[in-house]
């Protein structure tokens, strides 16, 4: 899976590259509009991560050039600007998603996965990981073909988030931001997260799925496939 990261901040680009490489993606970087367009014309990518403000121009130029050349690459805009206009403009020109800086790497990774899944595996609505299988249309979960009790929307979101980052430590704040979106920062306690995780664990356990969600003391949680 090939990803092009267009970002002019070296440290930010490096941390994203590191995280995505560990996820198994092949990550290339460009730090100017010129370099980005050159790469896009030469290669195909599964997903392009696009920063809007670049030293030699605007990221929207790249987006427009992609559209002009009828390229099918998925695009996620990563911008410091949280403006509705920019969001709409990006989505209208053809971006798949818009992520506002600062974001958690696990969040970015999950968004990339969603974009890739939508573009590449169109029609395949089953997500399988270990013995867990999720029907993305019906939002139902099976463990070893055995149905898991219906999950609440938040629990379902949480499970998908875990499944998008196996073996990764997800901090409470990462989970809170994913679940609560823009308003996670309204409250500074993670009690709501505990409640959701407790319920999710309980429902999985009842279906025989145990030990998949591990608590990492003081840090957060980790999703690990248990070999049966």
């Amino acid at each position: 899976m090939k990803i092009l990261l267009i970002e002019d901040n070296y440290d930010l680009a490096e941390s994203i590259e590191k995280y995505l490489s560990a996820e198994g993606y092949i990550c290339e970087t460009a730090n100017t509009v010129e370099k980005a367009i050159e790469k896009i014309e030469l290669y195909e990518y599964d997903c392009i991560l696009l920063d809007i403000s670049l030293p030699d121009g605007n990221g929207f130029t790249i987006l427009e050039s992609l559209k002009k050349n009828h390229k099918q690459d998925g695009v996620i805009i990563i911008s410091a600007k949280d403006s509705l206009d920019d969001r709409l403009k990006g989505l209208v020109i053809g971006a798949d998603d818009y992520l506002v800086k600062p974001f958690h790497l696990a969040e970015l990774s999950m968004r990339i996965m969603a974009v890739v899944r939508r573009r590449k595996f169109n029609g395949n609505n089953l997500l399988n990981l270990g013995d867990i299988s999720v029907n993305l249309i019906e939002k139902t979960v099976f463990f070893n073909q055995k149905p898991v009790e219906r999950l609440s929307p938040k629990e379902y979101e949480l499970l998908l988030f875990f499944m998008s980052a196996p073996k990764r430590v997800l901090t409470k704040s990462t989970i809170a931001e994913h679940l609560m979106g823009d308003h996670a920062d309204m409250f500074d306690n993670f009690d709501v997260i505990y409640a959701h995780i407790k319920n999710l664990k309980k429902k999985l356990k009842e279906a025989g799925c145990m030990g998949y969600i591990k608590t990492i003391y003081g840090m957060g949680y980790k999703f690990e496939i248990q070999q049966s």
Partner: peptide, 11 residues
């Protein structure tokens, strides 16, 4: 964003 991501890598 850099600090946040570095922390993500660190954990």
């Amino acid at each position: 964003a850099v600090i946040k991501n570095q922390v993500d890598l660190l954990v």
